[in-house]
């Protein structure tokens, strides 16, 4: 075929040679594989959500969220656990997000590339890999006993903060490092200080990545059981239905992740759909936070000036 094409005088340059055919086949194949993989990613997620919702359906209602557990936790709702999770996640992120982001800005934008920086970097990466149960034990020793915060929301939130901090630092650094060096150089060339550069160019261009990193830690903090079980979460706490601020910071609280464990394994004769409904609320809360973050990112992108 190649011979034909070469010998014919009015040769069509765009004839499909065997090489082109092979390349096209490889292209199609790669596309199909990648498509399948992405579908394979989505399918389990949909399956999980569908299964949970189906099992939870009988009790799933707004009332389930705002009601308190009744009849020895075999009936009723999850309000104390829901609000407790909001407390824990909110306070822990209020501590770890600013600390982590600022630390990352320092490490990436100011700190000189030297041995101290490398050690800090190594520490951050290793801390991010410490299992949550170890953080739990640390929180117990550091906050509950040493700092004398007792078993409390404060101790539990700080433990979660310690747990999420290194990951936030690592992800923020990655987001900052993704901003091209040429942008910074252009700013420095015209006599801008590091802070002016960071404010005008670096942060606006990394804010999406930074937010993504922080938001992922929301789900992590909301889902962990061990760190809060050791430091400030309890099985049951009497709270009024729908009460907005039921806890003081030095009290213990209930939390969704732990409540799920309790109703699924510890309490006999629980209404069958209650654990599933609890899981759905936990998942829904995390997804709602993610959606809010996406909305914030879109808003920031459309209002580059901030």
């Amino acid at each position: 075929m190649t011979q034909d094409a070469a010998s014919s005088p009015a040769r069509n340059r765009f004839v499909k040679t065997s090489l082109v055919v092979r390349k096209e086949f490889a292209e199609q194949l790669a596309k199909a594989v990648f498509f399948l993989m992405s579908v394979a990613m989505v399918a389990p997620l949909l399956a999980i959500v569908a299964y949970l919702v189906w099992r939870a359906w009988p009790v799933l209602s707004w009332n389930f969220v705002v009601d308190v557990p009744r009849r020895g936790m075999t009936d009723g709702g999850i309000w104390p656990a829901f609000i407790g999770t909001l407390y824990l996640v909110g306070i822990s992120l209020a501590v770890s997000a600013p600390t982590g982001v600022l630390a990352a800005v320092y490490l990436n934008e100011y700190a000189k590339e030297n041995w101290l920086n490398r050690i800090v970097n190594l520490a951050v990466i290793n801390l991010a890999g410490v299992p949550s149960i170890v953080h739990a034990l640390f929180g117990l020793g550091a906050f509950v006993y040493a700092a004398r915060f007792g078993y409390s929301i404060l101790s539990a939130s700080l433990t979660l903060a310690i747990m999420t901090l290194p990951v936030i630092i690592a992800s923020t650094r990655e987001a900052l490092a993704a901003v091209p060096a040429s942008f910074r150089e252009a700013c420095w060339n015209v006599g801008a200080t590091r802070w002016q550069t960071i404010r005008a160019v670096v942060l606006p261009n990394s804010i999406s990545g930074i937010l993504t990193g922080v938001i992922l830690q929301v789900s992590r903090a909301a889902g962990e059981t061990a760190p809060i079980m050791f430091t400030g979460a309890v099985f049951f706490k009497a709270v009024e239905k729908g009460q907005l601020l039921p806890y003081r910071l030095d009290e213990q609280c209930m939390a969704l992740s732990m409540h799920l464990y309790t109703v699924a394994t510890q309490v006999p004769n629980v209404k069958e759909s209650i654990p599933y409904a609890t899981a759905v609320v936990l998942l829904g809360t995390v997804l709602a936070v993610n959606a809010a973050a996406i909305a914030l990112r879109v808003w920031l992108r459309n209002h580059k000036k901030w």
Binding site: S182, A200, N205
Partner: peptide, 14 residues
């Protein structure tokens, strides 16, 4: 000392 770099860098600003 004004400096013009070899590769064009439009900052991501207006």
């Amino acid at each position: 000392i004004g400096m013009v770099a070899p590769l064009p860098v439009g900052l991501p600003l207006s």
